[in-house]
Design a protein around this nucleic acid. Structure first.
Lengths: 206, 206
DNA sequence: GTTTGTGAAACGATTCACAGCT
DNA sequence: AGCTGTGAATCGTTTCACAAAC
């Protein structure tokens, strides 16, 4: 398990996506150049990214599409399925729950929490919405691998603390705050307003 | 307009958020150290980030909260309001439309498009959903600054091409594809599955 | 005494370029 | 001949450390 940059991991995910497209089209081998042009990077970058994990190609030939895809799945830990808790059943939480892309790629939402009494107890595609006060009870009985946090900003840190105490190892955070958690816990924050502000900067500064 | 890294711009947005919190609490001045600890970075990083745009602090004292916030808004181009087109009125598109954070920060969704006849013509908070076939007509009559693309993967590139032809300058892309657009057009892609896969990598590799 | 602003140093990531297989 | 794998060179970002300002 070499230590590689975040940016490398992101590109590996992209390469996997492209390989799956090549696979569907029936392409058997690809060059680093083909993968690169598909993903807006360079062939040297592709080869360097892969080289952190081994050598998967044949010189003069390229990479076997199916084999490289399988290796990337293994590297990214996408062999099996992950169970996921969704915390916050508002608009965005609901949209994420109904988003098929997650299930399709091995991420199963198996628990939903909210603090709104109107939502608690309702059943969504077979999953009951629990009171967020029950977080400890529910996730102790049925532990999950990943939590998706979609609460208002003011609740996010408190829930994150409780998740950490429950031993969670990975959090996908949509609350517009910088979560404070021990460094061994993986956190990715998606801050939608931040993305728009980056576009605003680009628009104003030519 | 100095050329600064993407990562710097993201941090400036974060600093602005923190400054607004300090402002609410009635704090009048902050040090680079205070901003840094709030945002998980270092004081040197904060000072370097700001130094690209000028010198806004007083040595020995720190920064005036209100003044620095105002400077950051100016740097980020957040003085006025932006008009935004939402393309794709599915689950995530709907959630984004109803997301108050955008309006609160100056981004007004003023046009909605979809290709589903069941949705076309319905009116959401005063905005009629248009047929995506009408994209050119509607956006020529009422141009927007930013497009938020929330279409299925297979439609995204075609719509992006049409947006570029319409002269759009910034796209926030939620479709899980790598958009191919001229380099002078600002694109930020939010790929939710990619974020989960990055967590998967972190989980499997310790 | 405190904290900024900033060159210089350190670090990290990307690109180059070519030897080594096929 | 073609394409990978990889050290070395380059480029960009972060951190250091300190003189200057208050």
């Amino acid at each position: 398990m070499p230590k590689v940059a975040e940016s490398t991991v992101r590109r590996l995910s992209l390469y996997l996506r492209f390989l799956e497209e090549f696979e569907e089209q029936g392409t058997a081998t690809v060059s680093s150049e083909a993968l690169a042009s598909r993903g807006g990077t360079t062939s040297a970058q592709v080869r360097k990214d892969l080289s952190f994990f081994g050598s998967f190609g044949k010189r003069g030939l390229g990479y076997q599409v199916a084999e490289l895809a399988s290796r990337l799945r293994q590297i990214l830990g996408l062999g099996g399925r992950y169970s996921v808790a969704l915390i916050g059943a508002g608009k965005i939480g609901t949209a994420l729950f109904e988003h098929h892309g997650f299930r399709d790629r091995g991420f199963d939402i198996v628990a939903i929490f909210d603090r709104d009494p109107a939502k608690i107890g309702s059943v969504w595609s077979g999953i009951a919405v629990s009171d967020v006060a029950e977080l400890e009870r529910v996730l102790t009985a049925n532990p999950v691998d990943i939590a998706i946090l979609v609460t208002p900003a003011d609740a996010a840190q408190e829930i994150a603390d409780r998740l950490v105490r429950l031993g969670i190892k990975a959090i996908l955070n949509f609350a517009p705050v910088q979560l404070n958690v021990p460094h061994e816990i993986a956190v990715r924050t998606v801050n939608l307003v931040l993305e728009l502000e980056a576009l605003s900067y680009a628009l104003t500064n030519r």
